[in-house]
Design a protein around this nucleic acid. Sequence first.
DNA 1: CAGTGGTCTAGACCACAGT
DNA 2: CTGTGGTCTAGACCACTGA
Lengths: 249, 249
Amino acid sequence: MANQPPLQFSLDRSSPVPLYYQLSQQLEAAIEQGGLAPGSLLGNEIDLAARLGLSRPTVRQAIQSLVDKGLLIRRRGVGTQVLHSQVKRPLELSSLYDDLEAAGQQPATRVLHHGTEAAAAGVAAALGVPEGTEVLRVERLRLAHGEPMAHLCNHLPVGLLDAGPARLEETGLYRLIRAAGITLHSARQTIGARAATAEEGERLAEPEGAPLLTMERTTYDDTGRAVEYGSHVYRASRYSFEFQLLVRS
Amino acid sequence: MANQPPLQFSLDRSSPVPLYYQLSQQLEAAIEQGGLAPGSLLGNEIDLAARLGLSRPTVRQAIQSLVDKGLLIRRRGVGTQVLHSQVKRPLELSSLYDDLEAAGQQPATRVLHHGTEAAAAGVAAALGVPEGTEVLRVERLRLAHGEPMAHLCNHLPVGLLDAGPARLEETGLYRLIRAAGITLHSARQTIGARAATAEEGERLAEPEGAPLLTMERTTYDDTGRAVEYGSHVYRASRYSFEFQLLVRS
DNA sequence: CAGTGGTCTAGACCACAGT
DNA sequence: CTGTGGTCTAGACCACTGA
């Protein structure tokens, strides 16, 4: 576990970007590009702060953010080590559209329904509104390479989105919600599986009884208000959920 | 958004428990028990620090830990607010055994296989060892109320666990791994679905072709070493994955 | 404008790991 | 024992929000 040759960091004090953030970004880049070998020690915080002309708390803040990301691990009496990294994404509030686009799958959307209706009991409970409240229901078929991938049914409070069906065919729902100035905060998800009904099979080009992945999700904004309730069905033969998670310590 | 009546906090400076942690625990308790109403402001950090006889950074550290948990939200120029809370668990590295036990489902385990063997290609890749390395394979059937719930196949490096089949029938694998002094750090998971084969149906008391939930997971310890690769199959009629997640900001 | 959180400093002492 | 990260202090200035 030898130490590394001292790396070069460039800090711009005139930049509006916080110093700790500049440092954490450069550290992260050094780790990902192999400039800092897995298992190697980072060098103690005091020296690092002195070398960079920063105070120790600022350096600690930079390091801590990478510890929270799972890239580094601190041990008292030992030092800060680069983790042998299998790390990728810590599980995001993913958008199927973005996932497919990132995978080069050429996503497309067909809007099957777009209109308001009175919320049924289950939807009302999920959105935290009284039963019978007017809500927007959107049903979409998501395709990749022209093949159906999933059937997406979403309920939203009315007035949240001013986008019509046309916008929904161009991009993902989450992008539209964010574009409406809403800050997403958290979500509650349930993932399960069931056999396809005849109608579902028809829509997704699967035989009746084929296994389907299901996801129900309620998303909340930073005021704690529910902004979306989704009930999605994926072809199990074409899709699975993949994610990384960190152990709470 | 009126302010709250000032709450009482008791800090013990002679305790080995850090002050920021004592404060964050008491804040969290106050939030969960309704002493701090959702949407209410917490009061500014300077005053809070003065009232508690703490420095501002210490108070900030306490507040920040709750922000990271999703319980609070800070807005510059506004203040720190209690989030309208639907929050529960932020998604843990869950153990099926613990989940069932917490739900009062009386979990039981039947060990179907327990022995070492040469790692096949897929297993070797997941564990990051050369193909053909000796690894421990454990196959278990998990039951709840005497009904089969899941079939669990796990591969581990030899020597990691000294527990025999008897211990594996008493508790979950993760508890045994932790009891062996290993600090779990992260995991990579894939959740999918497929139709049951005849053999799987037999084991899980489902008809052939019934939908099954599948999970593959590789777990890493805090040195980045893979400690376990699991390939699990759950009865979709009896089980689903439920979790909360926070949006990366 | 006043008030808030966001960032930063330059120290201090303590707890724990490894020698 | 020495060296590390863990905690804590008492200030400072800035950026943003809302009146």
